[in-house]
Design a binder for these strands. Structure first.
Length: 462
RNA sequence: GGUCCCAUCGUCUAACGGUUAGGACAGAUGGUUUUCAAUCAUCUAAUCGGGGUUCGAUUCCCCGUGGGACCGCCA
């Protein structure tokens, strides 16, 4: 068998959503698992809607999640002449024919079918043009001569055998009136030229397989294997569209999802290996197979993405995590001041304990990053006179403290609890509010230990 | 409407035709003598319905029901 080659072939007519990313990931994993190749083909033959920025977005998204294509990306539009040649060849060999139907004529047929409540299939008028007069004012399209009777079977590596009556496959257009090739033709020709062995794509292409297979056969080309993976559904339960929010990679990066986490999530969405939930990159490559792909569509679940992300954050080396945080802050928040870096690295282990995302860590770190603490009106109300006295007392003790250690802080706080006849909350909460501007956050000792002595004093004095 | 596909806890899913139907996320409860978390322990929760085949169906077959995809001179 020839070397495994897969491809991902998006059209750059909109931002890639994570359904597409998953398809690419599966293709990539499958090729890596088989020590084969993975190619990217940009299907930009729709000139009107294709945009360079989307092409860039697609490649960025794939790279971000760790999917890199072999060779340069293929640009489909550069290959149009070859596609046309093949159309001519099909025409010459009587596998295709010119159709002179006007657009009105087709429209009329469609409406008729709709009225009758039957599926529209082109009536094959020009398949046998014996008694027809060729109109002078119409440029023909070229249609493929599809099988009329019998059944066709595709052995799908995910779906199993799919059987379909040939009569419902119409004589589809392979060359438009303006002479440009359509998707059905271009995809087949390119896949053939690229020596693609396995076409792994969304479920929505299933019917196309029956058209495309006929082109392969007419050209006497090897037919690749097909695997149609179920689509990802939105939370509403329908096909993920470009309009759904939180569906592009960028939406996840923005809230601080790690690429390892999203890759792991996507891998497990529609694919499984026993009870295993967490897969390293190497494990993914080694264990991935088409057998593990389920047949039913799956829904996006944000809480699960967050949970996996949390897992990766918890298990990540602090320096590496800081690097991610730094990059994240730079891009989506405020850049981290270099003077604060050391403090942050030191503190990241307790800052991350309360976080599901990089954004959470950033928020937890804000009391370190910000020079001025703002206290919300609501929190300010909690600072009554007795709380203020506690803060004052603490400040006195703190200034006298020879060495700031957890033990010394504990001693001081316990002393204040006794003195003011209160509990830990009575002391801890006002201190936290004054030091961080929030009722919530890390443990109070961690907060104090992570800040410089003079910063603590300054904040307490306010 | 036609064609095709799919169907296990709320969600992602596991289970050579024989399991008390398992795990994970979410949810609930309790413990950890500061908040929010985290953590630990425990719990709730599913084979869409009806027929077959079989000693025995989540698993195989048929019929319903529900959901989805496709039905472009888009890809």
């Amino acid at each position: 068998m020839s070397k495994v080659a897969t491809r991902f072939a998006p059209s750059p007519t909109g931002p890639l959503h994570i359904g597409g990313v998953r398809t690419a990931l599966f293709n990539w994993l499958f090729s890596k698992n088989n020590k084969g190749k993975f190619y990217l083909r940009i299907e930009d033959t729709d000139k009107e809607r294709s945009k360079e920025e989307y092409k860039k977005q697609i490649i960025d998204s794939l790279n971000w999640i760790g999917v890199y294509h072999d060779d340069k990306e293929y640009i489909q539009s550069k290959n149009i002449n070859k596609h046309k040649e093949i159309a001519e060849e099909l025409l010459k060999n009587d596998f295709a024919y010119k159709c002179y139907c006007s657009e009105e004529e087709i429209k009329e047929q469609k409406e008729k079918c709709k009225k009758k409540g039957i599926a529209y299939v082109y009536n094959r008028k020009w398949r046998d043009p014996k008694d027809l007069k060729i109109p002078q004012n119409i440029k023909p399209v070229i249609r493929f001569k599809s099988k009329i009777s019998g059944n066709s079977v595709v052995k799908d590596l995910v779906q199993g055998e799919i059987n379909i009556g040939n009569s419902i496959i119409e004589d589809f257009i392979i060359l438009r009136q303006d002479g440009s090739p359509t998707y059905q033709l271009s995809a087949v020709v390119d896949d053939h030229l690229m020596n693609i062995t396995h076409v792994i794509r969304g479920d929505d292409h299933k019917i196309n397989t029956f058209k495309q297979k006929q082109i392969y056969e007419a050209m006497k080309w090897n037919v690749p294997e097909f695997a149609h993976i179920p689509l990802i559904h939105s939370e509403k339960g329908s096909k993920l569209s470009k309009r759904d929010k939180a569906s592009t990679i960028d939406d996840y990066i923005k809230i601080g999802i790690l690429s390892d986490a999203l890759r792991n999530y996507l891998l497990r969405l529609g694919w499984s290996h026993k009870d295993k939930e967490i897969f390293s990159l190497d494990e993914s490559i080694n264990l991935f197979n088409l057998k593990g792909i389920g047949k039913s569509p799956s829904k996006l679940d944000m809480s699960r993405i967050l949970s996996i992300n949390e897992h990766y954050i918890k298990h990540m080396d602090e320096k590496i995590l800081f690097k991610f945080l730094k990059i994240y802050s730079q891009k989506y928040k405020k850049s981290i001041d270099t003077s604060k870096e050391e403090t942050l690295i030191k503190s990241i282990n307790f800052l991350k304990n309360k976080a599901k995302t990089l954004e959470d860590i950033y928020k937890n770190s804000e009391y370190i990053l910000k020079d001025n603490i703002e206290i919300s009106a609501e929190d300010f109300k909690l600072l009554d006179n007795s709380s203020k006295n506690i803060v004052k007392d603490f400040l006195n003790e703190f200034e006298k403290m020879s060495k700031i250690t957890k033990e010394n802080l504990e001693k001081t706080v316990n002393g204040l609890i006794d003195k003011h006849k209160t509990n830990f909350k009575g002391v801890g909460q006002p201190l936290r509010i004054v030091l961080t501007g929030s009722r919530f956050g890390p443990g109070i000792y961690n907060i104090i230990l992570s800040l410089n002595k003079d910063v603590v004093i300054k904040r307490l004095k306010n």
